[in-house]
Design a protein around this nucleic acid. Sequence first.
DNA 1: ATGTTC
Length: 506
Amino acid sequence: MNRDVDIPVRKIREDVWEVPQSYKDYMRVPARIYAAEALLDKMKSDRTLQQTINVASLPGIEKYSMVMPDGHQGYGFPIGGVAATDFEEGVISPGGVGYDINCGVRLIRTNLMEKDVRPHLPEILDTLFEYVPAGLGLSGKVRLSYSQLDEVLKGGTEWCIENGYGWEEDIERTEEGGKLKAANPEKIDEKSKKRGAPQLGTLGSGNHFLELGVVDEIFDERLAKAYGIEKQGQVTVLIHTGGRGFSHGVCSYYLRSFEREMSKDATLSKILSLERELACAYLNSDMGMDYFEAMCACANYAFANRQIAMHWVRKVFEDVLRSPAEDMEIRLVYDIAHNIAKEEEHEVEGKRKKLCVHRKGATRAFPAGDERLPPVYRNIGQPVLIPGSMGTRSFLAVGTETAKLETFGSCAHGSGREMSRTAAMRKYRGSEVREELAKRNIIVKTRERRKRDVRRKRDIPFDKYGELAEEVAAAYKDPEVVIRSCEVSGIAKRVAAFRAIGVIKG
DNA sequence: ATGTTC
């Protein structure tokens, strides 16, 4: 079961572990694991540790190849992987970003209380479901021409605000102001543009969701208040989605191109033979920079996607509750990317360096005082969003000095999968998952499947809510364990917890 | 994650 028990892992301190660079000759830096022992043991049952070790072979990697407490096996990099490479001499790797570029989360607060919203919950969810389509391959309500799509790719959240999809204040409450300046629409292939143009403002599938919740517990009153989180029972909204089919197309396109290019370079050829999924290109090369600029465009698309979804949340609350969004104080707390490679400066061995920080299923977590934070949060610290799964709590945390010093200002991004989708489908029935949540007063809305649309697996009976089983809480790590490990290792500090009352599941 | 197999 535990295939990686032979890897030498030594304890650095509570919930921090290290595999020395000397373990393999291709490692350029040690591998670091931020996790409680039980989480570390789970990482040994799949390829998580081996993948973290492989990432340590990337040219230009600084300090450590890291994996966060919710880490598990992914494509090339583990999900939960963090790796920073020298921007001048190092490489960029699409596997260190993921297929869903700028998949991320947005937390919204309101001044409404659970009792105000409960009676209207079914209507709110039904209406939201119309405005923010959930499921594979669907089109959104915003219709874009190709030239408008290019404007979105360059402008991100700014384009949304200029075109009536949000408030000016939403911009500074989004990581990087919702706009990566290096974005270049010309670096996107036509096929991805065609696929992505109609999908803006859609939720997608899998673990993507739009969730109405309430404040369940406040751990730090001062910070919570600064983030607009004031009391138990206060209604909040979480949106988890990313760059849709658009980003998937771009990632696939560049992975293919990278593999062809790598065989021409001796150093990169070795990486390709070690692990094909670690395709990469020097940032200081045409191919590397093309991907970087395309990836930034995808990131802007995803920021815009979540911004437009929030716009519909404001509109639906207005329509159903018959009150202006301003009066209900439907305000963005923060929007954060958790699948991205960012140009950031960090201190390495006493020197400030320009790095490419890959966060793949990992969240930026800057502490108070960081000059890159917007004025509203500069003296408070960056809000860190760690959503749970269906029926478990989600957390709002804050970045720490330890994170800044050790993990290039990064921490966990959520609970992390623990059971494969197929395994979850075999073990649980979607309808039962839905009923169990209903017993706990959590309404789940999702696209119902028709029998003829579902490719039958012989041992799994048809269920119109079948896909819900893939996202059952038991298929994920317990978020309480993940947040504890973030705190014990020192890379984040919890501020508040939320529990869901209504979920639109993608 | 994903027009769930270019």
